[in-house]
Design a protein around this nucleic acid. Structure first.
Lengths: 347, 347
DNA sequence: GTGAAAGCGCTAACAG
DNA sequence: CTGTTAGCGCTTTCAC
């Protein structure tokens, strides 16, 4: 009679597990067991309860589940959702999580350790069942601390930690593929953009790719022709790199930009100066972003199969959630994708 | 003494609000009030409780909060996290949500109505305090049904619904800006890639841009020179568009691709055929993706300030959560960004 | 194989 | 202004 102006009055309340149990004529405990596919329910019971759930349009309330058991939700931390590679990873992870009734929620955490740590804590506060951390910038100690609280899979960063799993591309090998390719084209003096903001001995991709570059150059007897340029891995960093390269006494004839985004910055700056690629020098990236394949760009790069990384991360996380305690660290094989930004030395 | 092998045994339990209350020597109700910044607590009490929270490293348990009150979490549904524009929106929204102690979690929902509806339901099941839906593909009726349950702000799609808010760019005006620019360059016969998979009378950006294009052409007395090409708004769709344009009896001298991604597909296909832009025809996109500014691309496009959209969406959602009930629908002004893919007709 | 009852951490309603 | 208490929806002992 009253309260018709209250929007909530007209809103049918959500069915709860009590409603389901009442409707099916069983106890809430049994309804709960059916919901969770738990051990020890008869087929008849299962059928009856599921019918009631359907009839009532029942959907479990996640916070309530989280109070006692699992939330059936996995959190994924990324620095920035605007990264084609991250998108592949989340799609891959979802594809294995969803059939198992787990949902994936993404937290865009920014590019510094402080805000990434906050985002991770927030995910834990949400009582997520597990975490996928994509290329985290936090310290190894932070990672271990988090992994002590909740199942964790790190994607993109190499790791040897015992308390968590990791999946990443074999960046040392990938860097080697680029060097081999350039040397084969006749280049000897080769530059590498290093993103040295990270400490060189870390296990971030930046460091591993640098080490892989130096190793490969040495393998070819070119250690004296390895030129390391220090600029950020970003569009603007690439622009800076052009100036640094131009200032060199003995500039390289080919540049390995470390990442596609950096290579794009380099191309863009050269273009603005009416210079071309590979005219000015050959150029290679890393990541095989979607944009790398677009005609006018045609960037030579390394493909890492983000999709497979995501699927693997999802699988490992489910295993952890289910109780596995031994660490698994996987390295996926990278592949060279040669396009038009790399050319023989004297052409 | 026992259970040292149980990982949970060594793990210090999380501090709860009861621990805080005990530590501060107050009731849990008072501690809760301090936590929520609620009305009616003395300064002394506030200080005391906050000190205890800090001392214990207390972090509220979100599911528990969600059981009775708010989760202080906002959900954002996007089709795909790999969209530079969506990234700007999430950053913008976060920047207004975070200072108010709300957290943003993103759900990558895919490109069909069914999975988007599922993602939205999952967000509701999480007891989110409000939802930001970015360019949803679901029906208007679905939107209203959702908005009856939870505060909703739609970003990108125009809307007149009374139960929810919306923020979008003025796509009709934006399309007009492109046409004006092309006409000014001397073009008369102009093509538009229409992404006709959506019903033309919908309020999706696709339809509004098409209408804006046709209106502008008419305004210039060029209605007979408006050429509508039907191809998907994607890299591959752009490639298809090239073939469709080539098959035309009277091909346009300029093409408005409807979206940057489509324009990139067109450029890529032309490049593969050794043709250039604007050599083959002038080309314009829409969205001002980051990649549009990269030198070799240099795409003429429309900028929509995703950052401002995100901030506005966040602000509107907070107002809704705080109880506003009147609908707000905002249209943001787009701006032309002329680059090198558009040139005078006879050059 | 099934059910009754306790309780997860928090907030809201009310009493003092 | 502060404290007591009930209960949100679910899972989990522990009886039966």
């Amino acid at each position: 009679m009253s309260g018709e102006q209250d929007p909530r009055a007209s809103r049918p309340k959500r069915a709860t597990i009590v409603d389901v149990a009442l409707h099916a004529g069983v106890s809430t405990a049994s309804a709960s067991k059916v919901l969770r596919n738990a051990y020890g329910v008869s087929d008849a019971m299962k059928k009856k309860v599921q019918a009631s759930m359907d009839a009532l349009g029942y959907r479990p309330h996640r916070p309530a589940r989280g109070m006692r058991g699992r939330t059936y939700t996995v959190g994924m931390m990324v620095s920035d959702i605007d990264n084609p590679f991250f998108s592949l990873i989340s799609d891959g992870a979802s594809s294995v999580l969803r059939p198992r009734d787990y949902e994936l929620l993404v937290s865009p955490a920014g590019y510094d350790a402080v805000s990434q740590n906050q985002a991770i804590e927030a995910l834990i506060d949400h009582q997520m069942d597990g975490l996928i951390l994509v290329a985290p910038l936090v310290t190894q100690a932070d990672l271990e601390r988090v992994a002590a609280e909740i199942p964790v899979v790190v994607v993109g960063n190499h790791s040897e930690a015992l308390s968590l799993d990791s999946v990443s591309g074999d960046d040392a090998r990938g860097a080697g593929l680029i060097v081999d390719h350039l040397v084969e084209l006749g280049h000897r003096r080769i530059g590498f953009v290093a993103n040295h903001q990270v400490s060189p001995e870390s296990n971030r991709p930046e460091s591993v790719r640098l080490a892989g570059f130096l190793d490969a150059m040495e393998r070819h007897g070119l250690e004296r022709d390895a030129v390391v340029i220090d600029a950020q891995w970003s569009l603007d960093g690439g622009r800076d790199a052009v100036r640094l390269i131009d200032a060199l006494d003995e500039p390289p004839t080919a540049v390995f930009a470390g990442a596609d985004i950096t290579a794009l910055g380099i191309m863009s700056e050269l273009w603005g100066q009416q210079r071309s690629v590979p005219g000015a020098y050959s150029l290679a990236g890393y990541d095989n972003s979607r944009i790398a394949s677009v005609g006018p760009i045609g960037l030579t790069t390394i493909d890492q199969s983000g999709d497979e990384m995501g699927r693997t991360a999802g699988r490992l996380l489910l295993e952890r959630i289910e109780g596995r305690n031994e660490a698994t660290h996987l390295l996926l094989d990278p592949a060279l994708v040669a396009r038009t930004t790399t050319a023989p030395r004297n052409s």
